[in-house]
Nucleic acid binder design. Structure first.
Lengths: 116, 116
DNA sequence: TACATATATTCCTATATTGGAATATATGTA
DNA sequence: TACATATATTCCAATATAGGAATATATGTA
């Protein structure tokens, strides 16, 4: 069997960093594909394809306006992630403070670059 | 270019449902591989391989005890997910209540089964 | 040491990407 | 109608799975 489809659920869909970037952009204001292409500096088919995945799992919806399609985030669709993560929240807090978390994040980014 | 590696970051690692299931199990209490094999009813190499991904991104650590290896969750490693999701929390709340979210979850599960 | 147990790793197959390029579709405009 | 613009889709290549089977490694025990 192969790996889980990106459209299997919200968790799979946001696994791709570019799709998280799209969500972060669209949460501020709804945008057309072309506006996203300019904002992200990606090729148009790439934007459309990532949007298609997000649309499939319901994270974004689309509205037609002339030739354009305006995409907007449905934030409530991200709620299962919040609910899932919630059960772990009680475990951090004492063990590690904000600064430590930040430093570990930096560390991790370095590791990832080394590994590629 | 190919798809993002599962070990690219925490978001990619938890994209796989089985790995989330392992985390949910291990957060309750640390367990050996064999205990997980029994608890999950998966084959041993499958458990070990999923644990290897989680270990790679730091979500679990392992401790040797005789022939066994005891795995435990490092919940603070899930914090980047909580921080990412946090920026969207303000957008739900009014628009949809708990019950709606629950019903939509059920709906979504049905859709997913239909689609395969 | 010989054997059993616990776990990790390797090899394999099928599949689903991600991204680029080219093309199709839809819609607005002269 | 002919053309331009906006977006989606198809085709392609490269790659990284997820899972099964077999095997390797490590450690405890008789």
């Amino acid at each position: 069997m192969a790996r889980t489809k990106t459209t299997y659920d919200v968790f799979s869909a946001i696994g791709e960093p570019k799709r998280r970037a799209l969500i972060e952009k669209l949460i501020v204001e709804e945008m057309s594909v072309n506006e996203l292409v300019n904002a992200m500096q990606w090729r148009q088919p790439m934007v459309s394809k990532h949007l298609a995945v997000l649309k499939d799992v319901g994270i974004v919806t689309e509205r037609r306006l002339g030739r354009s399609r305006i995409y907007q985030v449905r934030p409530e669709k991200l709620r299962p992630i919040q609910e899932w993560i919630h059960q772990f929240e009680k475990y951090w807090g004492g063990a590690m403070d904000q600064l430590d978390a930040y430093l570990e994040d930096i560390q991790r980014k370095g590791d990832r670059n080394d590994k590629q």
